[in-house]
Design a protein around this nucleic acid. Structure first.
Length: 616
DNA sequence: GTAGGGTTAG
């Protein structure tokens, strides 16, 4: 072993750290100290980075004490390194302390600060830091813009984002690939797809998988799937490899739209790209198959994941919940815990929904009460809303009311909406009025509120009140969301509205629907006209019910799909009582499995029964 | 005889 001096020790530490051999870097640093050498600031820089990369906060703190003793902590590089380390370990207090104690700060120190704030969720602080930095006359470069744009994207501050964009153009930085990507992402996240696309198009040489994915994700968020797919095709034409981010985003879109055909094709490409083991991709596949109604495939895909992450477990818990399988939801939650995966806030939303869709009120309440105590997950607005839903669906409206009054904050729109829906189901006019009033303030543009309130009045026979609600809707320019159902046959999606006559095969469809209704009448079907809130003639009501979009879609699917294949119908509103009982009987007379996905869950109809057990 | 900061996901 040749004699080492401080120069060669330092070179070794920094060499290991730079090539990602962090433990070796730290070991060498320790050996150097044992050999009696005092570390230089260069060695400090490297070893702090190694410790940051490993997430060793305790060791990092020891380094910090040592650097104070040796007088390095006020050095520009070492100080920035420590601030960065504290941020990346989530130690906000120490990061700020180190930063503000530094006598000299440059653009690198400020970037670490801005990025630290952003990564820890303090977006407004990040923007403030940028302003302070600019006021102090520090040079702003491409790194600073990237981090600051990330903060703008997170708080959807497009005004500030645009301001940054103009600075970027003035400084000639818009062709930097990182800056271009961050700009595309910022515009996508604030929903300004025109600007996102324009940044993306003007910097064509800077286009890469990151900016493509940002753009795709922006379109997916806006439900513009066609445009997202166009960008995807463009990316492939250019020979750019889609990565796990790209697939996650597109498959998520398929899940939301229940586009099984597209989703399956993407799954094949995922396998070809060897990305099926990625935790995000595999989880979103579980979710996609679940949302497309293929429960068995969803479970199968989950089963192939060797070590499921919390994301994958959450997907499976959510899939069972959406399919109304309460016991499976709870069983999956238990398995997750047994495997040592700690549940998070998303797990509890899914778990509580599973309980709620099954009338498992006591179980749900127990889980809610144990969240903070046993699992350290503080309940948020969505969890409180699940409990309101849980009590409301079970008809325990007084308890739901008491629960709301004891909440530490006001329920969100989902909470009031569940409460109002329950008031409608159980005919509670007084409580319903309170909920409707709150909802109209929270979401004045939501037509569902007016419709539910009008239904409550109609059931009570208060036609005068029904008229006044309808007048409110007209005056407030609130339009009722029309109900529609869609069904995929091969590669084509067929959409049907109420009393829809636009389909080319409409005569054939209505004929088949007529036959089906005749057949189910023979085994006891009676139209449930009291669910129609309008003050109209009985035969008119019946006609309206029989032409609900889901009935038309099923009649169409039965004449268009090969025998034996399960029929999957998707609906944008909640399925009505009449359709529910009609479809149960239809599944008997045609001997087929019929799956309906409404806007809150799945119904599997088979042999005259529904998987929801008539509780939904 | 060497060093620090930046972009996409449930």
């Amino acid at each position: 072993m040749p004699q080492r001096n401080i120069v060669s020790w330092t070179a070794m530490v920094s060499g290991y750290s730079q090539s990602g051999m962090y433990s070796e870097a730290i070991n060498t640093f320790s050996m150097m100290r044992v050999a009696g050498e005092n570390p230089t600031q260069f060695a400090f820089s490297s070893v702090i980075q190694a410790s940051t990369a490993l997430g060793w906060l305790v060791y990092g703190k020891q380094l910090h004490c040592l650097s104070v003793k040796l007088g390095f902590n006020f050095e520009l590089f070492v100080g920035s390194n420590f601030a960065d380390m504290y941020w990346k370990c989530g130690d906000l207090v120490d990061a700020c302390r180190v930063f503000y104690e530094m006598p000299f700060k440059d653009e690198v120190s400020w970037t670490a600060m801005i990025d630290g704030y952003t990564k820890n969720g303090n977006f407004e602080e990040a923007l403030l830091a940028f302003k302070k930095m600019a006021c102090e006359g520090i040079k702003v470069d491409q790194h600073v813009f990237c981090s600051t744009l990330g903060a703008c994207a997170a708080v959807k501050n497009s005004v500030f984002g645009k301001l940054l964009h103009s600075c970027i153009v003035k400084l000639g930085l818009e062709l930097n690939i990182f800056v271009g990507n961050a700009l595309t992402d910022m515009y996508s996240k604030v929903g300004d797809m025109e600007s996102a696309s324009s940044v993306f198009r003007t910097n064509s040489e800077c286009r890469n998988v990151v900016s493509c994915t940002s753009l795709i994700d922006g379109y997916v968020e806006k439900d513009e799937i066609e445009k997202a797919l166009t960008v995807f095709l463009e990316l492939k034409r250019k020979g750019i490899q889609p990565n796990e981010f790209t697939f996650s985003s597109l498959i998520k879109a398929c899940a939301n739209q229940a586009a099984l055909e597209q989703g399956t094709q993407l799954h094949a490409q995922v396998i070809k790209s060897h990305l099926e083991k990625d935790p995000f991709v595999s989880s979103v596949l579980v979710d996609m198959y679940g949302k497309c109604g293929l429960l068995e495939v969803s479970i199968h895909v989950f089963g192939k994941i060797k070590v499921p992450t919390d994301i994958a477990w959450n997907s499976l818990v959510g899939v069972f919940a959406q399919h109304g399988l309460g016991k499976d939801t709870i069983r999956t939650f238990d398995q997750m815990r047994c495997r040592g995966v700690p549940p998070n806030e998303i797990t509890f939303v899914n778990l509580l929904r599973g309980c709620s869709h099954n009338g498992m009120v006591e179980e749900g309440l127990n889980y809610f009460n144990s969240m903070a105590k046993e699992y350290g997950v503080e309940p948020r607005a969505e969890h409180y809303s699940c409990v309101i839903d849980l009590l409301g669906r079970a008809g325990r409206l007084k308890e739901a009311e008491d629960f709301i009054s004891r909440m530490p904050f006001e329920p969100n729109a989902f909470g009031w909406c569940s409460y109002l829906g329950a008031c409608r189901t159980y005919g509670d006019k007084e409580r319903g009025e309170v909920a409707a009033e709150k909802l109209m303030k929270l979401e004045p543009e939501n037509s569902g509120t007016h419709v539910l309130l009008s239904n409550i009045y109609a059931s009570a026979g208060q036609w005068e009140d029904v008229r006044s609600v309808r007048k409110m809707m007209r005056e407030g320019k609130v339009k009722k969301l029309p109900g529609y159902s869609w069904v995929d046959i091969g590669n084509k999606t067929h959409v049907f509205g109420v009393e829809d006559g636009s389909h080319p095969q409409i005569t054939e469809i209505y004929e088949n629907l007529g036959n089906l209704l005749d057949q189910i009448r023979k085994i006891g079907y009676v139209a449930q006209t009291d669910s129609i809130p309008l003050n109209m003639e009985e035969n008119q009501k019946e006609r309206l019910l029989h032409h609900h979009s889901e009935k038309i879609a099923i009649a169409f699917a039965l004449i268009s799909m090969p025998a034996g294949k399960p029929i999957i119908v998707k609906k944008n509103l909640r399925i009505c009582v009449d359709c529910h009982s009609a479809i149960k009987l239809i599944s008997t007379v045609v001997g087929r499995k019929i799956i309906v996905r409404d806007n809150c869950r799945f119904h599997h109809f088979e042999d005259g029964l529904c998987s929801c057990g008539d509780y939904w």
